[in-house]
Simulated scan of single mutants.
Amino acid sequence: MNFIVFLAVGFTGGYIGHKLKLPVGAMLGAMFAVAIVKSLGFITFQSGTGLIFFLQVCLGAMLGVTFLNFKKEYVKKVSLALFFILFGLVVMIFFIVLLLALVTDLSLPITILSSSPGAIYEMAMLAKMLEEDAPAVVFLHLARVVIIMTLFPLVLHFIIRFLAKRKRNEKAS
């Protein structure tokens, strides 16, 4: 019965988060709803290895669906760009983790997972598998997503205006 209440609370929270159009609203709504209800003592459900296995299979199946139309020629076309992106990400993550390790008391796995560019779902799942603080990883990822979603359009707009102005100046010359 506790499991059914857990699912009902999770689905209700997920639905509310989705309807509020929060970034990754279904996951965050479900997470916060279950956390609130659990902290109030209404449910005592603990996730076990069976549930985690089931969720990993579902996540793997969802990711597998995205590769249905993936062509090998595309990998060849973007391989150089992929190399530079991966190299840049590894260097960036190294410095971010180093900085976080110096200025916070977060564990090394949390700093790595929260600064890695993976999706919130996958990083939370990895944190749970490593028996780390998954909500901290989700919170840090969410903060990063909100900041990026707020700042990136402004930066992109500035870059487009700058390039358009530069192009006009070149034509005028």
Rank of each mutant, 00 (worst) to 15 (best):
T44Q: 15
A61E: 04
L59F: 05
A35K: 05
I36W: 05
T66Q: 14
M62P: 04
K38S: 11
I36M: 10
L59G: 03
I36V: 11
T66F: 11
F54A: 07
T44F: 12
S47G: 09
F67L: 15
S47Y: 08
L40R: 14
G60Y: 03
I36D: 04
K38E: 04
K38Y: 03
F42P: 07
L40Y: 13
F42I: 14
F53W: 12
T44A: 15
G48F: 01
A35P: 05
Q56R: 07
K38V: 01
V65T: 08
S39Q: 08
A35Y: 07
Q56T: 12
Q46D: 14
S39E: 08
V57C: 07
F54R: 03
G48P: 00
I36L: 14
Q46K: 15
K38I: 02
L55Q: 00
V65W: 08
C58E: 01
L51K: 00
F42L: 15
C58H: 00
I52M: 06
I36A: 14
L55M: 01
F67W: 12
T66A: 13
T44R: 11
G41E: 01
F42S: 12
G60K: 05
G48I: 02
G64D: 06
T44H: 15
T49S: 13
I43A: 04
F53T: 14
G50W: 10
S39P: 03
I36T: 08
L40M: 15
L51F: 05
G41V: 03
V65L: 11
G41F: 07
F54I: 05
G64N: 09
Q56I: 11
G50Q: 12
C58N: 00
F45P: 03
V65K: 13
Q46G: 08
T49F: 10
F53V: 14
G50M: 10
G60C: 07
T66M: 12
F53A: 15
F54G: 01
C58P: 00
S47H: 09
I52Y: 02
S47D: 11
V37W: 01
S47K: 08
F54V: 06
F42Q: 11
M62W: 10
V57T: 08
L51V: 04
T44Y: 09
F67V: 12
G60N: 05
V65Y: 09
T49R: 13
L59Q: 01
F67T: 11
F45N: 06
F42K: 10
T49M: 10
G64A: 13
Q56A: 09
F53I: 14
Q46H: 14
A35M: 15
V37E: 00
G64L: 07
G41M: 06
F45S: 05
Q56L: 15
I52Q: 06
Q46T: 15
G50S: 13
S47N: 09
L63T: 14
S39T: 06
Q46P: 02
L51H: 01
A61L: 12
L40T: 13
L51I: 03
I43E: 00
F45D: 04
M62T: 09
L51P: 00
M62K: 07
G60A: 08
V37Q: 03
M62R: 08
A61W: 07
K38F: 02
Q46E: 15
V37Y: 02
G60S: 09
G64P: 04
G50F: 11
Q46I: 15
V57M: 12
S47W: 08
L59W: 01
G64C: 10
L40N: 13
F53D: 10
T66G: 11
